[in-house]
Design a protein around this nucleic acid. Structure first.
Lengths: 351, 351
DNA sequence: CTGTTAGCGCATTCAA
DNA sequence: TTGAATGCGCTAACAG
C-alpha cells in the first residue's frame, strides 16, 4: 500500500489524508495536486503528472474535505429541502424527485422536517444559511398568516442576499421562484367531473382555515359546483387538520351529526383515505352510501379499495422541477404551474 | 440598522458578515466574540461583553459559517442517512425518526437515496465521508453478496478510521452497531398466529433471493409453519422484487398458474398490498378466496381494506434508536434487537 | 477573563 | 504548465 514502505500511509489514515499528503506522495506541488484532482477550469495539468496525482490519491484513500472546499470556493454543493412531514407520502415523493435531480446536479440534500411548525421552518432556513447551502427548496403549502409569511420572506431575503437561491413548492407569495400546483383549477375540474357523474349532495373536508392549498382546492371545487348549479352550504364545509387523522376526525363529525352526504371531497388524499376509514368504521357502505374524492394521487393510493377518485399531481416530477428552479439564480422569480389531471375511479360511481 | 451610521452594515451583508465584523462592531476581540456566541466549554465571557457581542451579531444578521466551524473544530454536526427509497413508507417513517432525533441532538441530516442500487450506496458513503459527516446511518436490509458487502464494509471501515461513526438498520453483518428487527422471530410468530387461525394452504411472496430481510422473514415463517406440521413447498415460494410492484407481479404469477392458495404471506407490507390489488384486479374475493398477511405495519396500512394482518415494527422508533447508536462511538459494535408484534386484522379471518 | 496567534484543508492568485 | 503564497471564517492553544 505504502509507496515508500514506511507504513506511513496507514498511520496517516488515522489522522486524515490531506491534499498535501497526496501532493508529496506524487512529488508535485499542492496547487498541481488540486488542479489534477479537480480539473480546475482554466488551468490544465500535464497528463503524466495528473495520472501520478490520481494514483497517489487512490493509494492514500484521499477524501477531499468538502468543508474546506466550501470555504476556499465560497460555495457548497448542498441543497436544503424543507418539508412539513417526510413521512407523508406527498412529501416523500417530492423528496424522491429532489434527491434524484440533486444527484444529477452533483449536489447533496440536507433534509429538514418541520412537523408543520412554521417556527421550525424559520429555524431550518437559518440552519441552512449557516451551512451555506447553495439553494433551499421549501415544499408545502403556505398559510394565510401575514406575520409568519413576512418573517419567512425576510429570512429568505437575507439568505438570498448572501448568495443563496430559493424555490418554493406551493404558493408564489414569498417572492421566490415557485412550482405552483394548480389547486384551484384542479378542484374545479374535479367538481365538474363529479357533477357530471350526478353528484349534487356534497360535503367538503376543507383542511385548516388558513391553509392556502386547502383553501384553493376547496374554493375551486365549490365555485365550479356553484357554476353547475349546486350550492355547497357553509354547513357542509368541515374544517380539519391537513392530515390523515384530520380527515378521519372531520368525517366522524359529519357522521355524528347525521349529515353524511352522497359525496365527500377531501382536499387531499391522505385526508380522503382517513375519511373513508371513518365511514367504513361507522358501518357505512363506500361508495354505496357515501362516495369519496381526494387530491394529489399519492403513490399509496394504488392499493386502497375502492380506488379513490382524485386529481393527479406528478409529485416526483414536481420535486425534480423545483431543483433547477432552486439552483439557477433568476433575476425575476419564475413560476411553473403544474396542472393536475382528474382521475375518476371506483370511489365515485355514476349516480 | 447600522450602528455607526455609515451604511456599512448593508454593504457587508452582500459580502457576508464574518465573526470579525461582529467582534469589531462589539468592540471585542475575535476570540471573545467566538466564545460569546458559542459558549465555549471551558472559557466564560463576562455578561455585559457577551450581551454586546450578541447584540452586534443580531444587528449585523451574523450567520456563523458551519463549514468554517467544521474545519476549525475538526468535526461537523451532520448525520448522513442512506436509504433504499425515500418514497417507500417504510423508509420515510424511519427518516422521520432519524430527523427527529438528529434535531434533538443538534445535527443536520443529509439524505441519500440509493434506489436500491448498491453502487450508489457505496458512492454515498464516499460523499458523506467527503462531507466529514459525523455519523452515517445505513437503513435497509443487506444482500447476500459477499463482494458487495466486503466493499461496503471496507468503505465504512475507512470512514470510521477517519473518526466517523456508523449505525445500520438491518442485519449486523458489517461490523457496525445495528438496530436489528427480529425478522425471523416476527415471521415465526406470524406463522403461528395464522396457523392457529386455521390456515394450511399458504404461499410466500418471498422477495429477491439474495435479500436478507426477505429471506429471514420467509424462513422464520416457513420454519414455524413446518413445526406446526404445515410444509410450504418450494413451488409455493415465489421470488419477486421487494416493492409494491414486485408483490403485484408475484401474485399475478400465482393467479396465472392457477395456484392461488388460501393465504398469501408477502415479506413486506408494500408487497402485500400490491398483491392484494392483483387479487382484486383478477376478480378474487379478498379475504374470502384468498387471505393476505404482510410485515412492517407501515403507516398507510391503516386505510387499506380489508385491513392487513402484519407484524408491527415501530419504524419511526427504529429511526430514533439508530441515531444515538450512530452518534455515540462504541468500542464494540452494539446491537439493538427490535421485536415485532403480530397484528391480526380482517385480511386473515378465522377459517 | 480577554486578546493574539496559529492553523484547519483547500482553491486560487501571482510569479516563475 | 507548475509552484509558492495568500486567505476563506472560525476555534483553540497560548499568553497576558
Amino acid at each position: 500500500m505504502s509507496a515508500d514502505g514506511t507504513g506511513r500511509t496507514v498511520a496517516r489514515a488515522r489522522t486524515g489524508v490531506t491534499l498535501s499528503d497526496v501532493a508529496r506522495e506524487a512529488g508535485v506541488s499542492l496547487a498541481t495536486a488540486s488542479r489534477a484532482i479537480n480539473g480546475s477550469i482554466d488551468r490544465t495539468v500535464r497528463a503524466d503528472l495528473k495520472e501520478r496525482v490520481l494514483a497517489a490519491a487512490a493509494r492514500l484513500h484521499y477524501s477531499p474535505d468538502a468543508n474546506a472546499q466550501a470555504m476556499a470556493r465560497g460555495r457548497t454543493a448542498t441543497i436544503g429541502l424543507i418539508v412539513h412531514d417526510i413521512a407523508d407520502p406527498y412529501f416523500s415523493s417530492i423528496a424522491a424527485g429532489v434527491t434524484g435531480a440533486a444527484d444529477e446536479a452533483g449536489c447533496a440534500v440536507t433534509l429538514a422536517n418541520t412537523h408543520h411548525d412554521p417556527r421550525r421552518e424559520l429555524e431550518f432556513v437559518q440552519t441552512l444559511q449557516n451551512q451555506r447551502a447553495r439553494a433551499i427548496i421549501l415544499a408545502g403549502g403556505r398559510r394565510d398568516d401575514a406575520e409568519g409569511n413576512e418573517q419567512l420572506r425576510a429570512a429568505l431575503e437575507n439568505y438570498q442576499e448572501r448568495g443563496g437561491t430559493v424555490a418554493m413548492i406551493g404558493q408564489p407569495i414569498l417572492g421566490v421562484s415557485t412550482v405552483r400546483p394548480d389547486n384551484r383549477g384542479g378542484g374545479g375540474a374535479l367538481a365538474d367531473a363529479l357533477h357530471e357523474l350526478g353528484y349534487r349532495d356534497v360535503a367538503i373536508l376543507a383542511g385548516p382555515p388558513g391553509h392556502l392549498t386547502a383553501r384553493e382546492r376547496a374554493t375551486g371545487f365549490r365555485d365550479a359546483m356553484a357554476v353547475s348549479g349546486t350550492e355547497i352550504l357553509p354547513d357542509a364545509v368541515v374544517p380539519s387538520e391537513f392530515t390523515r387523522d384530520g380527515g378521519y376526525a372531520a368525517m366522524r363529525t359529519l357522521i355524528d351529526a347525521r349529515r353524511v352526504p352522497e359525496l365527500v371531497f377531501a382536499v387531499n388524499d391522505v385526508m380522503a383515505v382517513g375519511a373513508m376509514s371513518a365511514a367504513r368504521d361507522a358501518g357505512l357502505d363506500v361508495p354505496g352510501q357515501v362516495a369519496f374524492a381526494g387530491f394529489d394521487d399519492i403513490a399509496t393510493l394504488r392499493d386502497v379499495a375502492p380506488a379513490l377518485t382524485t386529481v393527479r399531481l406528478p409529485l416526483e416530477e414536481i420535486g425534480r422541477l423545483a431543483t433547477p428552479l432552486a439552483l439557477e439564480p433568476a433575476a425575476e422569480p419564475r413560476e411553473i404551474t403544474v396542472t393536475g389531471d382528474v382521475v375518476v375511479r371506483e370511489s365515485t360511481p355514476r349516480r
